[in-house]
Design a protein around this nucleic acid. Structure first.
Lengths: 195, 195, 195, 195
DNA sequence: GGATAAGCGAGACGGTACGTCCCGTCTTCCT
DNA sequence: AGGAAGACGGGACGTACCGTCTCGCTTATCC
């Protein structure tokens, strides 16, 4: 049984949660004005009023800190609403995704993942697959209800749906708003809908 | 009389094309083992046997150098083959794209574009739009020939097709080979084909 | 209550005296083989096993470092010995001076002072005047004892005595040994001695 | 026999005297605002409208150029005036010397000579000794005429006289005007005059 | 008078050092 | 033991000059 009042009985001064959150907040706020490649640990320390050593005590490098910051502000959970249509469900999940990707934090995360592919695995199970599995279940259910064509390659379909969003946000750098989301989902549904 | 059209007059010692290509080759070869974020101008100088000053004489920073290196080795032209089917044409263009994206140079380029979105415009017209416009013409022609559904939102469709590829290559970090390309194109065609 | 008189409070890691002395020693030893104009901070860093940043943390440029090194090894104090004759006292102080000037450190110092006259003031009170004032007291005392002519312009006399030494050491680049010192002091005394 | 009119019959375009003097003028004018240690060949080239290569064709380094510039503007000749007194003659020669030393060019020259003693020989015979020999003749003549003490060590005496001036100009950085010159010569004469 | 040769301005080149910034680690004192 | 302050060794930055070189052009002598 775990006793949270007395804490994990360790000698010495306990770590400061305040410091941890200050660091993460500083990271996030600095990314508003500075691209991740120009973000420095020293700037974060100064901004958060924390010593560099404290940052390094919690995270080994700025990528790890970025990941922590990302997970700190990101809701990974995907709750599909059975009452809603498939399209409406997608509107919800894609909308959430776009919000994340449009934040500097999201951009920075993706940057690191592409630059250092070995880090992708850290997010595969906790982030990408979560959304993907849920989406796939949605489509599978749609097939069972005969509203989605039965011979659709669901993996490729989902690559296309999500891929379109990433592409627009990052490489075409156009505003991705509800209009775009609606349109891409409509196009997507048109291709997979069973008449 | 001064003729500004070509010629350039060229006073002083002309720049060394050998140095330029050595720099670009060094950049490319270093990216094989080093992620772009760890690539240094100093390493490029040493590897290419060129002085740092010469690199900075021609490119203001490593991003600009990366772009030059990318364009140096990348064929942007897209030549669609009327004799081939739409799917086969896409196989060709997507295959070319995947080769580019799978190279470290491609990864690095995309990394920079996401980290510093203001640089995207430099590639919009010379790279992304070239491929996109050609692809769109292909689909438009397909509609004229009644092999593509007339009410397809072609822009969204292309976002999905290209997006799927980017997503797989960069974020799912899975091998994207001809099998995958065939499958995604098949799924894509299934959604837009006119029966 | 804050006591600004001494103490300094000293927060953070204290500076390394070992680094400081290593830097100064490296400076001195390099000047044995390299003229000051060819001395580089980078060579000092390498020789002393210290990072460049540490050098710049404590001195803004190599001139300032040179001055610190000079003062580090130079005894400025002048202790005249009442038991000795005026000439013997001068022999002592001039001998000390010649030792200093003959060292590369001394040469370098003088070089800088001539090249950048605005720096002279830094040494006026702590070095030149110390020796000069003591010497002047000696002569004044000699006048009181009627062994020095009363109408001597002591300042000009001292300019001549010290000037002769500087001139020989630096511009005539001849060995200035005890023979020379004895001779110049003899000539000097001959001019001012009261018969 | 050497014919200076037709010159050393060389093939090719002759050297440009205009360039040479422009370089020397630029050197002199730059030294008004820049200490010699900060003087650069590039700045001289720009200022004089000459290419760097031309400067290096004439002088191997900036020290050599400095020497040329110094000799270009300096009259080395010392003409003692038999009609004048010894003191007046000294007033003349010391006055000339002070003018030279007070110019940036003079300072720069001395700086180099101290920093790189091996260069002193280049000026020993052409500059220092010229003045010194003439001064010595003056004193020797004075001894013959019994106005200078016969047992004076003339070399040391001259070291003191000239040394005083160098010391004042360079290390005490005080204005050395005719008042000072008069005073130091008076003091000097007082020491060597035969009563 | 055409060939040959050197001088010249412009400016690129390989190289070295600059002074700065940030890294990740450390040492001190304070909590 | 955690933490703020800040020094430390290290390494890359982007810049400034070094002294040399390669251009196209000019200015002389030589044959």
């Amino acid at each position: 049984m775990h006793n949270p009042s007395k804490q994990d009985k360790s000698v010495g001064r306990p770590r400061s949660e305040a410091a941890k959150t200050a660091i993460i907040q500083a990271t996030i706020s600095l990314l508003d004005t500075v691209p991740f490649s120009n973000l420095t640990i020293e700037a974060i320390a100064k901004q958060s009023g924390v010593s560099k050593a404290t940052i390094y005590r919690w995270w080994p490098n700025k990528e790890a800190l970025l990941f922590a910051a990302f997970l700190h502000v990101t809701t990974v959970d995907v709750n599909f609403e059975p009452a809603l249509s498939i399209a409406d469900n997608f509107r919800q999940v894609i909308g959430d995704l776009v919000v994340i990707l449009n934040q500097p934090l999201g951009r920075a995360l993706i940057t690191v993942l592409i630059d250092q592919p070995e880090r992708v695995t850290a997010f595969q199970t906790t982030f990408f697959e979560v959304k993907r599995r849920a989406a796939k279940q949605l489509l599978t259910a749609g097939q069972a209800q005969h509203v989605i064509k039965p011979d659709i390659d669901l993996d490729k379909a989902l690559d296309m749906l999500f891929g379109a969003v990433y592409l627009r946000v990052f490489l075409y750098t156009e505003v991705v708003d509800t209009d775009y989301i609606d349109a891409v989902i409509a196009a997507f549904m048109q291709g997979i809908r069973q008449d």
